[in-house]
């Protein structure tokens, strides 16, 4: 175990590199989803898929060896509902939590405003939770299906490995293959869009040339 101070230093270094790379590449998670849905462009979506493939192999690979620190908490209806609200929010705000920090660092006051209201939203939730006590606090999570609390419990590649006796990496490779299939599908689609676009442009140019020829002919006749 690292001391908390060392952890904070490692986190800060990681965060700084992440902020720098995202500022320079203009990667945005919101754009990765929104642009694919609204505009059928996939610049960010492809980058996200590549990262997910590398991470799936890395994480499940180390998890097979019992290394690493996977997240551990129960999930359930709140996981879906929370990210559903988040998904609406990020499209309306035009940025997710990461890009609000990155854009704030570039001097975007709108992003800072989004960040402040993210904090306000979190505080509002703390008020609601203090009245409802749902979803269950980490201390009362059971890891098992808990119907009254609308919880599905806890499962990941490691629990699969323990239950089925198959190394976590095997599941990881299956997921990576699926992600790769999705990636290839997107690349194919982009190529199709590209050829379509070129065809349009060629037709447009042909029409333009024909028009110019007619005009030129008319001009010579006039003379």
């Amino acid at each position: 175990m690292l001391s908390p101070v060392v952890e904070c230093v490692v986190a800060f270094v990681f965060g700084s590199v992440a902020g720098l790379l995202m500022q320079r590449s203009r990667f945005c998670n919101t754009a990765a989803l929104r642009d694919a849905i609204m505009f059928k462009t996939y610049r960010n979506t492809k980058a996200m898929l590549v990262a997910m493939m590398i991470l799936t192999v890395g994480f499940t690979g180390f998890m097979s060896l019992g290394a690493g620190h996977p997240l551990r908490f129960d999930v359930g209806l709140n996981t879906f509902a929370g990210l559903f609200l988040f998904g609406i929010g990020m499209v309306l705000a035009g940025a997710c939590t990461v890009s609000t920090w990155v854009k704030t660092g570039e001097g975007n006051l709108g992003a800072l405003w989004a960040l402040i209201f993210t904090f306000v939203g979190m505080f509002l939730f703390s008020v609601v939770w203090s009245a409802s006590w749902w979803p269950p606090a980490p201390q009362s999570m059971t890891g098992q299906i808990n119907v009254p609390a609308l919880q599905l419990g806890f499962a990941n590649a490691q629990t699969l490995q323990e239950k089925l006796g198959v190394p976590a990496i095997v599941f990881g490779l299956v997921q990576t293959a699926l992600l790769f299939a999705l990636y290839r599908g997107i690349v194919k689609r982009e190529r199709a869009q590209h050829t379509e676009h070129e065809k349009h442009q060629q037709e447009h140019q042909k029409k333009k040339a024909a028009k110019a020829a007619v005009q030129a002919a008319a001009a010579t006749q006039d003379r």
Binding site: N78, F84, F86, G87, A93, C96, A114, G121
Partner: peptide, 13 residues
Amino acid sequence: GGLLMGFGIRLAY
């Protein structure tokens, strides 16, 4: 958007 993101993050953990 900010309010929804903050509330959603906490609801989902």
